[in-house]
Write a protein that binds this DNA or RNA. Structure first.
Ligand SMILES: [Mn+2]
Ligand SMILES: [Mn+2]
Ligand SMILES: [Mn+2]
Ligand SMILES: [Mn+2]
Lengths: 226, 226
DNA sequence: AAATATTTTTAGATCAGCCCAAAATTTTAA
DNA sequence: TTAAAATTTTGGGCTGATCTAAAAATATTT
């Protein structure tokens, strides 16, 4: 069984390699985990020893099959707990991440599968991120950034690129919750800000910064193996 | 903020001093936490340094006010999570202890109070043990061991002295779940075994060992400060 | 291609937790 | 009231996780 710290490293390496599409650098991991490069090198040796990662000195690190399975389970746990906290305990979507960071490390035989069932087998977490199923399969969606939508096109708010409480609270204030249907009315070339209309008829102006951190879905997704 | 290990020590010291009614010995703590006396002495120094306990070399250890508050919150968390696991995730009452041992260490502002509300502010956990409220107040009940009941007297199964999965599963098999009303029919002097009648009309024979590990309630309890 | 800057690793320490073996203290028995 | 037994503490050492400072390797400029 792995320590919480080891699990956090695996999750971080997974996240970085997924996003970057190449081996994770020592510095990137250190930045993500708020620690030093020296500590990271130390841990990479240990994880490599346990065949949880593929690591070559100075060349960065990738997930092994074993590590990938564990990291996927961690993401599953994290997101299911987030659903629980929002749906059942009525936390706001900007309050649940830190608690889920702790809860994801709880180990137990059928715990997560029971939680999954209790929550009704949700496919997405409160931030619109997909929840891998018990076999580690992901639900993929065709979603694009609002900043990539063309005037006249419609979309449904389906996720966020930035997960910071500040951004999430701002979206709350704007009334731009998940599943809101929107139409892009106009994009102003001067600053790339946009004007949208929501399904309840309100017109909103959004900065380029907001538009570049909000995902909209164009059509429904399908299940596929990762 | 305390480490999980420190929290476990506080809970153990609390449990032992409550049961024994006197300072907890190094050996008792070591036995409870499945560690060595040397490790315990080590930790007692650290906890004493943080004024979480009153510790005098060779004289045993007692809770300080600060430690007592923390230990009480830990018991509250442990038991509320047990209720969640049984009531919501449908675990059996003999399966939840180890998970609750982990969950009780999750820290978060309003987490436990929200969980408490979500569960309907339960006063007792799945094993009949009282759950302290947010202010650390306990619900006390007049419950006695079944082995102390006299022939002809009635009682309601309200708790267990032994929490082992083996005993709990055996009670399941006997159909002696919490809140079952029973009448003591006869006690056999030869081995102190008893014959009881349950509220659904069944007659059961119970060994002295079972009777000495099962609590029955005689009347409803009142709230008081500890 | 050489010089410079950046990234990564190593060396050496610290700290919390844990252990064993030996010494000190307290308790029990003779 | 001594001697023996049991308990507790101390001393020394180990591991996992962390850090700083210095060395090594890689990447970027000139
Ligand atoms: Mn999160
Ligand atoms: Mn999320
Ligand atoms: Mn328990
Ligand atoms: Mn319990």
């Amino acid at each position: 069984m792995l320590s919480q710290v080891e699990e956090n490293y695996l999750k971080s390496i997974f996240k970085i390699t997924e996003k970057e599409g190449k081996p994770a650098s020592t510095n990137a991991i250190a930045g993500d985990l708020q620690t030093t490069a020296a500590s990271v090198t130390d841990m990479l040796k240990r994880l490599s020893e346990k065949t949880l990662i593929h690591y070559e000195k100075y060349k960065g690190v990738q997930m092994s099959d074993k590590g990938l399975t564990i990291a996927t389970q961690l993401v599953r746990r994290h997101r299911l707990w987030e659903v629980f906290l929002v749906e059942k305990l009525e936390f706001a979507w900007d309050e649940v991440h830190d608690l889920a960071e702790q809860l994801e490390h709880i180990h137990g035989n059928s715990l997560i599968d029971r939680l999954d069932a209790f929550l009704g087998n949700p496919r997405f977490d409160p931030h619109g991120d997909p929840i891998p199923d018990a076999q580690g399969r992901w639900t993929r969606r065709k979603q694009i950034l609002l900043s990539a939508l063309e005037p006249g096109e419609k979309g449904i708010v389906s996720g966020v690129e930035n997960h910071s409480p500040e951004f999430l609270q701002y979206l709350d204030q704007l009334g731009l919750v998940l599943h809101t249907q929107i139409t892009l009315r106009e994009r102003f070339p001067y600053d790339q800000s946009v004007r949208i209309r929501t399904d309840d008829g309100r017109e909103l102006s959004l900065s380029e910064k907001v538009a570049a951190n909000l995902y909209v879905e164009e059509q429904s997704g399908t299940k596929e193996r990762r």
